[in-house]
Design a protein around this nucleic acid. Structure first.
Lengths: 154, 154
DNA sequence: AATGGTCCTTCCAGTCACTGGAAGGTCAAG
DNA sequence: CTTGACCTTCCAGTGACTGGAAGGACCATT
């Protein structure tokens, strides 16, 4: 039993990509315009379902829609070089590492500050003191809020 | 020597918040509208500079603009309870942990796949195979793309 | 044939936190 | 008096959707 002639709701359910998002992907050219029924309904077959599943998995790995477009093109290119795919993946891995390092740095500072805030009804608060730029109390590592923000500032 | 009567460019340089962003913060009500010179130029004093530095540090710790607004209000409230500040910080820390776990999961899968891809001129590629939903080669952990995306699925 | 409910269609607006750029006014120096 | 750096406002775009309104289509039942 094949699964030809699905409406958008059906293919959404089967792929995990919401119908609205499928229309959005079509509108930005990530996927080709679907065929239409006489009444104008979008019609999808197994091929489109597979494509949407591919997209969904790539998005779940954090690839941008643009990167997914590149991966889709490579997927559909029988003469692709696996090196090209690997390069896209590695760039993404680097980006993930960069984001994780940024989060880790924030986390360290935040945890330090939270640990030193008694968190009761009194107004005295090292978290606010740090944000306000007041010199930290002497008790070990300073953990001052100093996180360089991401790459392309232009 | 005090630093009264700065133009937006000066306070931007001193606070690290770009002039455009300062205007944006004013437009969304994060900061109060600046005083104006006869010609309509915004004028800032030390107080506003301190506020902008506070905002900048909070943003560098990853607090959302909305959270920064809450922190600013607490900062300016002499009767605040440090517990309220700590609660905001803890919620943010939880969010950071959630994001880090998500990134870590992506990272694990991605690194596994990259390690399996020979990355040369040949088309054969386990990265694409995984995204396409093909069963993984038997060689240990599967590391299949399975990352739950964030909260409200609509 | 009418009704109801669930699907589908398009289009517009909103999210978040800016950022870029155009068109024009102001200021200080030379 | 011109130059250039600064300032002003307003509009549009980013990324990746998501919500909602207004209206058409399909199917089953009454």
């Amino acid at each position: 039993m094949t699964t030809g002639g699905m409406n958008i709701g059906e293919v959404a359910k089967r792929s995990g990509v919401p119908a609205k998002t499928i229309r959005y992907y079509e509108s930005i050219g990530l996927i080709r315009p679907a065929e239409r029924s006489a009444a104008g309904y979008r019609i999808y077959g197994d091929r489109e379902l597979q494509t949407l599943r591919f997209i969904q998995r790539a998005r779940n790995l954090g690839f941008s829609v643009k990167q997914v477009g590149a991966l889709l093109a490579l997927w559909q290119d029988r003469a692709r070089a696996s090196g090209d795919v690997k390069a896209v993946a590695r760039r993404h891995l680097d980006e993930i590492d960069r984001r994780m390092a940024e989060l880790q740095s924030m986390r360290d500072t935040l945890e330090h500050l939270i640990g030193r805030c008694h968190g009761d009804h009194r107004p005295d608060c090292p978290i606010l003191a740090d944000l306000a730029g007041e010199p930290a109390q002497a008790d070990g590592g300073s953990g001052r809020a100093r996180v360089e923000r991401s790459g392309a500032d232009g």
